[in-house]
Computed example of a mutant assay.
Amino acid sequence: MQSPAKPNNPNFSSGPCSKRPGYAVENLQLNTLGRSHRSSLGKDALSQACLKTAELLGLPEGYRVGVVPASDTGAMEMAMWSLLGQRGVDVLAWESFGKGWVTDITKQLKLDNVRLFEADYGYLPDLDAVDFNNDVVFTWNGTTSGVKVPNGDWIPDEREGLSICDATSAAFAMDIPWQKIDVGTFSWQKVLGGEGAHGMLVLSPRAVERLESYTPPWPMPKIFRMTKGGKLIEGIFKGATINTPSMLCVADYLDALSWVESLGGVQALIDKSNNNLAIVEEFVSANEWLSFLAHDPHTISNTSICLTLDAEPDQVKQIVKLLEQEKVAYDIGAYRDAPAGIRIWGGATVEAEDLNKLMSWIALTYDQVVKQA
C-alpha cells in the first residue's frame, strides 16, 4: 500500500506554533535592529504593535494594550500580583496552566478569601456557580486539555469584581467578547505564530481604576510595576516597555499582524481555525478508535485540539514518534500532565490541506502500531 502524501508543513506544535503560510524571515522590516527600543524608531514599532493589536481585536474604547516581559505567563503574573487582594477571588482550573494560577493565588500570594472551581481534564467547572462580586481568574481556552469556555454569556456585563482572563491560545482564534474581559493576556507565539518571550496585556478602564486606587500589601518587583505615584504608567501601553524587548521579535509580530490585515481581519482567522477543527471532527466521527478529550462538543477547542486514542500510553508515544520520524508531524504528543493522547494545533497558521494529510497518517500509524500489533 502506498503511503499517503505528507503535509507540506509538519509543524503542528501548540507552542511555539507554526509560522504563518508564506512566512520568510527576509521579508521582515528590520530597520529597528541595532537601534534602541527607546529611540523614536523603536518606540514607533512598539507603539504600532499595541495600536494594531487593539484595532484588529476590536477592543472597546478606553482599553489599553501593552507589550510586557515573559510571554503570557509574565502578563498574567503582572495582572495577578498587581490587582488581586482587594476582594475575594474565584479561580477556575481545568488543566495545567489554570492550576498554575491557583498555585500563585493560594501559595505565593497566600490570599485567604479564595474559592476554587476545578474540573478534570476534558471537563469545565460549573460556570454558573462563579460569583462576579469577586475577582475571577480563568483561562478562555485550556491549551493542555483542548477545552474552552463555550462563550462569554456566563460573565455579567455589570460586575463588581474584575474578570482576569488568560487568553493565550484563544486571542485571534476565538470570538472573545472583550467588553466582558477586564484583563486579557496572550503571547505572540500562539495563534499568530510569533516568537516567544513577550506577552500582551489588555486592560479595561475598570482594571486601570483598580490599579490606581489599590496598592497590594506585598512587595512588587520592578518588572510588575504598572503605576507610579498612584497613576498608571501610560507609556507601557504606548510602546515604552518596562524592560528591553527583542526588536527582532517585534518585527516578527508586526509581520504577523500585517498578515491578519491581509486576510481581512480576525474573523478570517477564526473561520480558518473553525474549518481546521471541522476536518478533525469529520475524521473523529469516522473512526471510533479516536475521541476528543473534551466531553462536551460546545467546549472543544479549535486551536489546541486534544485527542485520545483506544491505545496504551506506550502505543500512543510510538505513534507520535513514528509521525516525527516520517517528518509528518512534530511535537504533537499530549502535554506531560494531560492524559495520554495527541494534541494538534489547529490555529489559522495551519493549512487545511496539511491537516487532512496528517489525519490520513494518524490512521496509517494507528493501524501499524495498534491494529497490527
Results as ranks from 00 to 15, higher is better:
residue 290 L to D: 01
residue 286 A to E: 15
residue 274 N to G: 02
residue 235 G to R: 11
residue 252 D to S: 12
residue 272 K to A: 14
residue 305 I to W: 08
residue 290 L to G: 03
residue 228 K to N: 09
residue 254 L to Q: 15
residue 209 E to N: 14
residue 214 Y to H: 14
residue 214 Y to F: 15
residue 261 E to K: 15
residue 262 S to T: 12
residue 215 T to E: 14
residue 272 K to F: 06
residue 223 I to Q: 13
residue 258 S to I: 08
residue 207 A to R: 10
residue 205 P to M: 05
residue 233 I to T: 08
residue 215 T to G: 07
residue 272 K to W: 04
residue 292 F to C: 01
residue 238 K to A: 10
residue 240 A to Y: 14
residue 280 V to F: 04
residue 298 H to I: 11
residue 233 I to M: 11
residue 255 D to T: 09
residue 259 W to H: 12
residue 267 Q to K: 10
residue 253 Y to L: 05
residue 295 H to M: 03
residue 302 N to I: 01
residue 278 A to Q: 02
residue 266 V to M: 11
residue 229 G to T: 04
residue 247 M to K: 05
residue 262 S to K: 15
residue 219 P to S: 11
residue 191 V to M: 10
residue 208 V to A: 13
residue 290 L to I: 13
residue 193 G to A: 10
residue 271 D to A: 03
residue 211 L to H: 09
residue 269 L to T: 12
residue 195 E to L: 05
residue 234 E to Y: 14
residue 274 N to S: 14
residue 281 E to D: 12
residue 264 G to V: 11
residue 200 M to F: 08
residue 195 E to R: 14
residue 300 I to E: 02
residue 236 I to P: 08
residue 299 T to A: 09
residue 241 T to W: 00
residue 208 V to N: 12
residue 258 S to F: 07
residue 265 G to N: 04
residue 255 D to W: 07
residue 268 A to N: 09
residue 205 P to T: 06
residue 306 C to W: 06
residue 306 C to S: 10
residue 284 V to A: 07
residue 191 V to W: 05
residue 221 P to Y: 00
residue 294 A to T: 11
residue 204 S to K: 07
residue 249 C to W: 04
residue 271 D to E: 15
residue 236 I to R: 03
residue 260 V to I: 15
residue 250 V to F: 01
residue 297 P to M: 09
residue 240 A to S: 13
residue 266 V to A: 01
residue 281 E to Y: 01
residue 212 E to L: 04
residue 236 I to F: 06
residue 228 K to C: 06
residue 296 D to V: 07
residue 194 G to V: 13
residue 260 V to N: 12
residue 294 A to L: 01
residue 241 T to E: 05
residue 250 V to W: 00
residue 249 C to R: 13
residue 215 T to V: 15
residue 284 V to R: 04
residue 266 V to Q: 12
residue 213 S to M: 03
residue 237 F to I: 03
